[in-house]
Design a protein around this nucleic acid. Sequence first.
DNA 1: AATGAATGAGATTTCATTCAT
DNA 2: AATGAATGAAATCTCATTCAT
Lengths: 193, 193, 193, 193
Amino acid sequence: MARQRKMDEAEMLRETEKLLLERGYEGFSFKALSANLDIARSTIYEYYSHKDDLITDYMYILVKKVMDEMEIIASRTTGLETMKEWLKTFMTYDQVHHMIAMRGQLDQSESEIARNRLKQMDGLHGKMFFMLSNQVNKAKELGEVRKDLPNELVASFFFHSILARPANDENIQGWADMLNDIIENGVKPRKES
Amino acid sequence: MARQRKMDEAEMLRETEKLLLERGYEGFSFKALSANLDIARSTIYEYYSHKDDLITDYMYILVKKVMDEMEIIASRTTGLETMKEWLKTFMTYDQVHHMIAMRGQLDQSESEIARNRLKQMDGLHGKMFFMLSNQVNKAKELGEVRKDLPNELVASFFFHSILARPANDENIQGWADMLNDIIENGVKPRKES
Amino acid sequence: MARQRKMDEAEMLRETEKLLLERGYEGFSFKALSANLDIARSTIYEYYSHKDDLITDYMYILVKKVMDEMEIIASRTTGLETMKEWLKTFMTYDQVHHMIAMRGQLDQSESEIARNRLKQMDGLHGKMFFMLSNQVNKAKELGEVRKDLPNELVASFFFHSILARPANDENIQGWADMLNDIIENGVKPRKES
Amino acid sequence: MARQRKMDEAEMLRETEKLLLERGYEGFSFKALSANLDIARSTIYEYYSHKDDLITDYMYILVKKVMDEMEIIASRTTGLETMKEWLKTFMTYDQVHHMIAMRGQLDQSESEIARNRLKQMDGLHGKMFFMLSNQVNKAKELGEVRKDLPNELVASFFFHSILARPANDENIQGWADMLNDIIENGVKPRKES
DNA sequence: AATGAATGAGATTTCATTCAT
DNA sequence: AATGAATGAAATCTCATTCAT
């Protein structure tokens, strides 16, 4: 009797994310995943032959999604405005920071598939930082960013500033505005006459 | 063989840190630790009866060290200057950020000793943020920080800004100065005539 | 290799009994059990996630079996006759006495499943003693048992008398008859004129 | 500086008994013993080089004590009276039954000292049963016990009857009297005109 | 396409025992 | 006589992975 197609791969990736955030790389297990998805553990192997394959797949897709949004934004804005929009993207996908933290543990993965996907991901990640730095440069040319700061530092600053998240998560927009404000103008009062 | 020599507990904590940073909470194992220290796995249990006891001990000591340095700095400076000095402390102990990320996984620890140490650590952590926010307030009073920004956001911004670390780790001082500069003045050029 | 063959759970319980009787609660180990069953140690965990779960399962099933036999006997006899039949049941299942001795060590079990099963077992055990005492009472009413002895003592006497087992195990029936004889008439000669 | 003689061997044996009764043979550990006695674990090895040496020592001393009491009683009484007195001794030392249950696990002990002490103990145990059977015989000759019952069965019956212990432990004497009454006269009413 | 059954490797933890002081 | 330090072996338990159905 033919079994029903029970598996929804999108849901699988969602659960993967949830578990990775809750328990970290080593704490993540197919056992827990199969329990949460209410399928047999062995069924997961029909989709991913190694734990690391699934994890790197999830990671790659996540970074790709961020990249895609960044590119859409870049296609209709420039300079500081682009970067301010990107900041909102970074907020929406703040898991990325956790994934970067976990990435190191995957270096010695036994799965070649996983190691290859990591390389692709690193490529994307590099490209992402290149886009950031590049945009900083454009902003400099437009006179929106000081020329005495290294592009990479400003880029990295944008990317990490979202970690300064307030305790109460409500009002994302207001929070984003304030972050942008600090990044642009700094915390020191301007001596306006 | 050196059967009698007493374990060097300081070295044990140093190796613990190294392994935690390399492998994360779940990846950390007494097996690896004992191998690195060149002692028997069971010997570690003479010092810490649970994995979590050792980890929380390490974490607590780390946070305590940061706090102590912060207090010394606060005793001889104020306002923005204090915060700029603190930033250097945060840079020196940037492992703290990794530990905060791991902390969540320790909540369900079966070891009561570990759970208690976590409570103490949370206390310290709370105190740390209180000190930060407080200093932001002083800086506002001194006219060094804009009054329209919430204390907590500025505090959190300082604490997390160090994550915008440049690829090449050399020249910490220059890096610290630039971070401070961005935080103070922002990335936008000042319209100075 | 017979990789797919399903474990025979009945055999598992039989081996469990054997090992428990040979080595006691703390001496019982999954290592020995898996060796005797010629399966991998981890396979046992597919059936029982805790040592205590298996042990209490075995115990419960044992007590249940005794109870069931007792009830069948009680449904077709009364009074002293019932108790004499029960004595034979107790002889057949004399492991029960060992299990009662071990039970104490299970109280602090970490497995909730085990603790729950223990509660059920205690319930059965209580019911068993209630049935025994009750039947003593009936026997008193029928004039088969002296009225000056507490029900509980007579009940307990029946239950434990089977421990007075002769060295050579043959001839169960003769032994049972003699035990019954002593319990009924005592060891003192009746002064029959 | 000379350490104080902290160890009281009698107390050591008392704690050994307590732990053996609480946890059984495999559950008994020098770790727990040293904790209870508040001495170093290694100190116990000054007295007993093997776990089993201590356990068998305790067991032997226990059985010896029972034997000594039995012999004193036997020196001033005979027949059924002796056996009734012995019953009280058995009640006082009811740990003996637990020790007999544990004894089996010691057979494969690696310590030769322990194996030898076991042999001595078995000798005593045998002698004890010989005394019991012998006394049954005397009682038969005195017309106090029925001649149709095997000596060993009556002996064993006495020895084990104390396990029929009532729930509430108070009033040992009354309980002993009732047990003796049942053993002597049985539970069936005597048809006395 | 999905699953049930089994397994080997490894993690945490406990403990008897040894040895130098 | 007593102890602190260390250790190896073993026990419980978890999990990624394989394989037959």
